[in-house]
Amino acid sequence: MSTAIEILGGALLITGAFFVLIGATGLLRLPDILTRIHGASITDTLGAGAILLGLAMTAGWSLLTGKLLALLILMALLNPSASHALARAAVHGIRKPWLEKEDS
């Protein structure tokens, strides 16, 4: 049973690392600030979530698990606020976002 959880935790760790790489790629490749925020938010949600959950599974059941979950909840609450503030400031600041079509 414990080996199964450890294997699952390892798989989650690798998945999280993969999504961190995808987020970094998005940060470099996407053409404009608002689209880059989308790329970075993959790292913030799925990358960080999978890595922290994987660590919690490999560590076993203790107070540490609760701390990792608290870290996860804090990141899930604070990162959207930061991205929202950033996106709002960027829309006001750059005046002309890279859009395919106008608001329908």
């Binding site: 490749r29 799925l46 608001d103």
Partner: peptide
């Protein structure tokens, strides 16, 4: 929902032609 849309965005980011269509909606 997060996993689903993460995979969606990841596919768009990784594909070589970068098929994105940014829009602003209300």
């Amino acid at each position: 929902q997060i996993i689903q849309s993460s995979l969606h965005v990841a596919r768009r980011v990784l594909s070589p032609k970068l098929p994105i269509s940014p829009t602003i909606i209300h």
